[in-house]
Computed example of a mutant assay.
Amino acid sequence: MNNKLAAITGNLYLARSGIDSRSETAARLQSVETLSFEAASMVQQLLTFARKGKVEQKPLALVPFIKETAKLDSVAIPENIQFSMSYCENSLLITGDITQLQQLFLNLLTNARDALEGVDQARIDLSLQYYEPDSDFIERHPEAENKDAFACMRLSDNGHGIAPEHMEQVFNPFFTTKEVGKGTGLGLAMAYGIVTSHHGVIEVESTPEQGSCFSIYLPLQSNANTVLPIEQQQEVINGDGETILLADDDENVLQTFAKVLTSINYRVLTARDGRAALESYRQHRGEIDLVILDIIMPKLTGPDVARQIREIAPGAKLLFATGYDKESDHHGMTGNIEVLDKPYDLAKVSKSIRRILERESTRKADRR
C-alpha cells in the first residue's frame, strides 16, 4: 500500500510543479496529496497496532496540541453538529507520539460524529483537564497507582449511545454496529491500543439514546522540555547536480521518484533489484554520490547490497527506504543507516539527502 502511495504522491508533486501554484487545480492536487499522507499515516497506525510495538514518544504540551488538532479535524464535523471545547490553564505536559495522538483524537471524533446521525440538536463536547486519581479510579485501574496526575481528555456526544450488551466489545478489533460499508471496527480498537502504548487509561460511559462519553487519561510529566505540537512546513531543498543510485523493485515507485529527484537537480541511476543495484554501483562507482536502497528487494535485499557496497567503499553514503514498518528495523539489518518512509515526504527526504551529502566527503578517497 505504501509503495502505491509513494508513486501517487510522487506524481502529484510532478503535476503540481508544472502548473501555477495559485490555481484551483494546484489546490486540488495539494488536497489529494494531503489525503494520501493521511492514508499513509493510517497504514502506519495499523502496522503499529498489529505489532503492538515501539512508538516515538517525546515531551508534548497536550493542550496546545489538541487545540491545533481540533481545528484541523473539525472540518469533518457537519454544520448541524455543535462542537464545543474547554481547556484548563495548565498546558498538560505528557510524553506522547504526535502521529498516534492525532489518530486517537480523529478516531474518537469520527466515532462521535457517526453516533449523531439523525439526532436533533446534535452536540459534541471536548474538554481537557488536570486530574489527580482518587481511590475509586485506582481501584478500577490498579496500574495507575504510582501515577501522581493525569491529563484527562473527555469527548462526549448526545447521540444514540451504546447498548449495554455491546459495552464490553467496543474496543475489540473489527467489532462494529454500523451498516456495511460505514465502519471497519478498527477505530476504537486503535484508540485503545494508542492509549495503552502511552501507559494511559481509556474509559467509556454510555446510555442508549442519550449519548456516550470517552475519557482518556494520560500520565503527566513534571520536568521535560516541550516540543512543538505541529511540525512546521518545510521547503524542498534542491540538489547540486550530484548523482544518486536509486534501487526499488516497484517500477512505478522507481520511475516516479527518479523523476522527482531529477526535478530537484539530481542525476539519477536506477536499478530494479538488489543485484542490479550492486552491479550498477560497481560500474559507476566513480560517479555515484549517494545510494538509496529499498529494504525489501528480490535477489539481494537493501541491507545485503549496503554491506557489499561498504566492503567496496567504506565511506559510501547510503539511505534505506521502506513502505513497511521501519521501527521493526528488519531484525537489525539496517544498522545505523537512516531509513526513509514511503510514501516520500519530499521536503523531509530532500533534507535527509542534503544532510548525508554534505557530511565530510570520503568518496574521493574511496575512488580508484
Results as ranks from 00 to 15, higher is better:
residue 80 N to R: 11
residue 44 Q to K: 09
residue 368 R to N: 12
residue 105 F to C: 05
residue 37 F to P: 00
residue 36 S to D: 04
residue 323 G to P: 02
residue 152 C to P: 00
residue 32 V to N: 04
residue 253 V to A: 15
residue 76 A to Q: 06
residue 50 A to H: 08
residue 293 L to F: 11
residue 146 N to K: 09
residue 213 C to P: 01
residue 90 N to D: 15
residue 257 F to G: 00
residue 78 P to V: 05
residue 115 A to H: 14
residue 318 L to K: 02
residue 146 N to T: 08
residue 200 G to R: 01
residue 63 V to G: 12
residue 265 N to P: 03
residue 295 I to N: 08
residue 356 I to V: 15
residue 79 E to V: 00
residue 183 G to N: 05
residue 180 V to L: 10
residue 286 G to V: 01
residue 136 D to F: 04
residue 259 K to Q: 15
residue 142 P to Y: 13
residue 329 D to H: 14
residue 245 L to R: 07
residue 347 A to I: 00
residue 292 I to H: 10
residue 165 E to K: 13
residue 138 I to K: 13
residue 43 V to H: 11
residue 154 R to C: 14
residue 247 A to M: 01
residue 181 G to Q: 05
residue 230 I to T: 09
residue 92 L to A: 10
residue 321 A to N: 03
residue 110 T to S: 15
residue 46 L to S: 14
residue 318 L to Y: 05
residue 57 Q to N: 07
residue 183 G to R: 02
residue 159 G to N: 10
residue 48 T to M: 04
residue 57 Q to V: 01
residue 343 P to L: 05
residue 189 A to W: 10
residue 109 L to G: 12
residue 277 A to D: 07
residue 63 V to E: 15
residue 278 L to F: 15
residue 185 G to E: 06
residue 235 E to L: 13
residue 298 P to Q: 04
residue 348 K to D: 07
residue 292 I to V: 09
residue 275 R to L: 13
